[in-house]
Nucleic acid binder design. Structure first.
Lengths: 194, 194
DNA sequence: TTGCGGCGGTGACTGCGGTCACCGCCGCAG
DNA sequence: CTGCGGCGGTGACCGCAGTCACCGCCGCAA
């Protein structure tokens, strides 16, 4: 009935959706259920989201919040190399322990085919900003190669992190994400060191 | 009418599907259309395939055929490093030039959530067999590090190739896959050289 | 020869994601 | 105050992926 619930409706949908996703998984949650639980309507849902998979995109917001929380924990005494590995360890630890696998897989799956926003490629995200500043710093200190633009290093690093998550999803989380990532990432990053 | 079309039906479905995919894209092709074009029925379709996305899985067969065709072209004079890069260049060239982007993206997307076969993880594929033999050879010649099991090297290499394709799809094919892959892969592989 | 089990094959039907025509409140212009 | 345009909100409806109960042929066993 046309209330001024404008901001409220959207967040009611999001929280209802996530509750249901945690309870019964992404695939098994229907939009009708989300709509019912949030006390809204199907039309409202599509007013705020281009599709069901857009809800998965809000995962990247969760990750960015974690990055913001971690930023002040980066000690000046760490090398840029160590900073990157630290961030990766913390984030992947959270993912491995608190994010349901089907939601993560759903997000990486839908990002390839969605009509909505491609969060993984949004270079304005906190994630990319943080990587850029650490990389630039590493170059300034002479730690990272200067013959490759910082943007290229960031891009390659992000590509590698995505690969690790994609692979982990493909394997249904059958191994330790944190451990394997530490191995691969440090090996990969060494190619960018002086 | 219960004919003995058993083998035929399946291949009629596959070829009809691929024709339609090339004509109108994966999303815009309905199973009803595939069924109509192939002169079969919906039930038959689901008798042979667990779902629509299983058709995308047949892409990996195409890739494996290409690998088989390329195997004899590997000269003995090449280092293992060069062989891997050669295979990558040839395959990605084919992908970049002849495979519609939405099909590739569809396959990488569906592999994460499909109930069917996970071809990307099928270690019996020609692809993985070839990688293993080249890698083992490289280790025997002392070219590759021996302190890492061949299987681990193969796994990391495959992870990297997947990452490159995933990224290329995410970016809607906005850059040269072949060129970028050569850069990243050689940098990555160097971490496994002696 | 006959009875039977299973497999290739069929299409009406269901469930869900997504669309669309419509409604009513609110703020603003005259 | 009044008329109007647009935005938040609604739910019946639609299209398509996927299911299911059923059918008829063939080969095998008794």
């Amino acid at each position: 009935m046309g209330k001024k619930n404008n901001r409220n409706t959207r967040s009611r949908i999001v929280s209802a959706a996530w509750k249901l996703f945690y309870e019964q998984g992404y695939e098994d949650t229907t939009i009708d259920e989300i709509v019912e639980r949030s006390g809204t309507s199907k039309g409202s849902f599509y007013h705020y989201f281009p599709g069901k998979d857009a809800l998965l995109g809000t995962l990247s917001t969760l990750f960015d919040e974690k990055y913001e929380e971690l930023t002040p924990k980066l000690a000046d005494s760490m090398t840029s190399f160590q900073k990157l590995l630290f961030l990766n360890r913390e984030l992947f630890f959270m993912i491995e322990n608190t994010v349901p696998l089907d939601l993560l897989a759903g997000m990486y799956s839908s990002q390839l085919v969605t009509k909505g926003e491609k969060h993984l490629m949004d270079y304005n995200r906190v994630y990319y900003r943080l990587l850029r500043s650490i990389t630039a710093e590493g170059q300034a200190k002479g730690e990272f190669r200067a013959d490759i633009p910082a943007n290229e290093i960031v891009r390659a690093y992000a590509l590698c992190e995505r690969a690790l998550l994609y692979d982990w999803c493909l394997c249904d989380g059958n191994y330790s994400l944190v451990q394997y990532s530490a191995q691969i990432l440090s090996l990969f990053l060494k190619g960018f060191l002086n």
